[in-house]
Structure formats: structure tokens, C-alpha cells
Write a protein that binds this DNA or RNA. Sequence first.
DNA 1: GATCGATCGTTGCCATGTCAACTACTCTCC
DNA 2: GGAGAGTAGTTGACATGGCAACGATCGATC
Lengths: 154, 154
Amino acid sequence: MSTTTRWLDDEEQRAWRAWIDLNAQLSARLNRELQAASGLSIADYEILVALTDRDVPDRTLRMYELGERLQWEKSRVSKQVSRMEARGLVERRHCADDRRGAFVDLTEAGQAAIDAAAPGHVALVRELFFEGLSADQVRSLGRFATTVLGRLAD
Amino acid sequence: MSTTTRWLDDEEQRAWRAWIDLNAQLSARLNRELQAASGLSIADYEILVALTDRDVPDRTLRMYELGERLQWEKSRVSKQVSRMEARGLVERRHCADDRRGAFVDLTEAGQAAIDAAAPGHVALVRELFFEGLSADQVRSLGRFATTVLGRLAD
DNA sequence: GATCGATCGTTGCCATGTCAACTACTCTCC
DNA sequence: GGAGAGTAGTTGACATGGCAACGATCGATC
């Protein structure tokens, strides 16, 4: 075991703090504005996007597929779907093939909600995050994030 | 009002998803490991760091100062401090000057907890985040985060 | 076709966060 | 020195998230 710790130097300290603060504030802001503009939370939005990514007329996914795509715990998926079902955004449907399983279907109301919410949300992401970034910077940001993400998967 | 939305192109899409996923997974991982190794949550850790940053023997801050430094809602500070006080990590103390106010003091146990937790946490941050980044990359990452942070403050 | 481990989904318990309302105090200004 | 606005902190209601335990079912294997 080591006896000394290699602390973060000033530059690293600054970068790390800025990173942490940015994430906290960016997600808080996106959540707040999305909520105010459309009554959806980020969690709602992510579920709806996952369902909408399916080709028409298959706006449906198994619970476990939702969990895999979003990298969510199964209990998290289950609870989120319950809340959204209560608001009419999605519906659960029994699965005939696998009697343990359940499908989650996008409803008309859910489709309408995501259609209404998406343009404003994307515009805000653009304004807050991509504004002033060159294509090169976007690419290298993406590369960096993907690299770290890869390390996390191990 | 505009009739068309400028959606994210593929490159932006990728960068944005990677960013979102990275933050979700990185904070989950840091939280999990910190919790397992030291019994502290990230929230605990941040409060303790803020208090430790004060010069000895002033390991104390007003509630509202904690809120300003961490950019937390006051109710969030209040509840976090309550939980930590129950575990003996900090103590509340009445403020004589301003009788509405309260100080939060770091306890011996709190000091010991942060001392025990910090080396492992920093090592993990290094391993997961800074690994393989050049000084230049650290600097430009910091600049980017600071820029966006600035936009968020408006 | 019975058994046993793996998988799917739900639930309860608890920690965390936000928002709004509330109490108690301080400060400003007349 | 008192009214009214603002500030410090707490609380309650509610949404969210993780973890572990559970019931039901599936599937591989003998």
C-alpha cells in the first residue's frame, strides 16, 4: 500500500471542479426548463426518446430492453414506467412469449408530449452546450467522453 | 416563432450522448466506490471538503455559506447537514451575531472520515478521468467547462 | 419431466433533491 | 422606533434513485 497520495495539481483541480459544477448545473437547468416548458422530466424524456427511436408502428420495448439502452437499474425502469403510466404517457402490455415479461408501449399522449417537448429541449442544448464549439471541438469532446466511458465499462 | 428545428447532426448526437452517459456513469461509479470504501456519499464528501478547506482551527461555515460554495439549495444543505449531524460528522452551533443563523462545525469524526476517504477518492478520479490526458488536454477541458458554466450563470 | 440456477419484473426501505410555505430574525427607511 | 421588505434556516409533500429481497417464470441438464 502506498504511503503518499498524488493529489490533483491546481490545473487538474480547476478542471475537475469545473467539470463537476458544469454537470450539476447543466442537468439542473435542462431539467428545470424541460419541466416548465412541457411538464416532462429528463427521465420521462429519455424513456420517450428510447421508445420513439423504434420504427413505427413498433413504438414498444420490453422493460429489460429499456434498462439496457438507458443503462438503468431494473427497479428504476419499473418505477419510472409506473409513474409515466399513471400520467398516460406509456402503457404496460403483457408479453405472450415470456410470461414474466412486459412490454412498454408509447401512447398517443406520449407521442404528443415528446413531439411538443423535443424542439425546445434541443434548442436549449444547442444554446447552452454547443454554442461556439467548432466541429473539431465537438469531435474531440466526443472522443474524450467515449474514451473515459470505455474505461468505466471495464 | 420558428417552424423548423435544427436537430443535432450525427457528430453532435454522439458527443451529446457520450457526455450524458459519461456523467451518469462516472458519478454513479464514484459514489458507489466512495460509499463502499468509506461509508461517505459524494454529498457528504463535498460538505466535508468545504469545511476542511477552511483554515484550522476554523473548520466551520454558516449554512448559507455552504450553500453558496456548493451552489446548493438551502433546503438541501439543511437536510444534508441534519443527516450528517445524526452520524456525528458535523455539528450545528447557534450563531450569536445573527440569531437566525447557524454554524456547521467539522467534528473529530468528520475530520477522520475525510482524511480516510480522500486518498482513495482522488486516486479513483485520477484513474478514471485524468488517465492519459496531457496537461494541454486538461487545460482545454477546463476552459470548455468554465465557458459553458459562464453561460449557465446568466 | 423434475430440478436448479438464471432472468424478468415488482416492491419496500431508505437516501437524496426540488419546491413552496413557514418561522424567526435583521435591515432599511421614514 | 415601527412597518415592511428581505434573509436564514427548517419543514412537509413529493419525485427520484439504489439496493436487496421476493415471486414468477424460463431454460439447461440430467
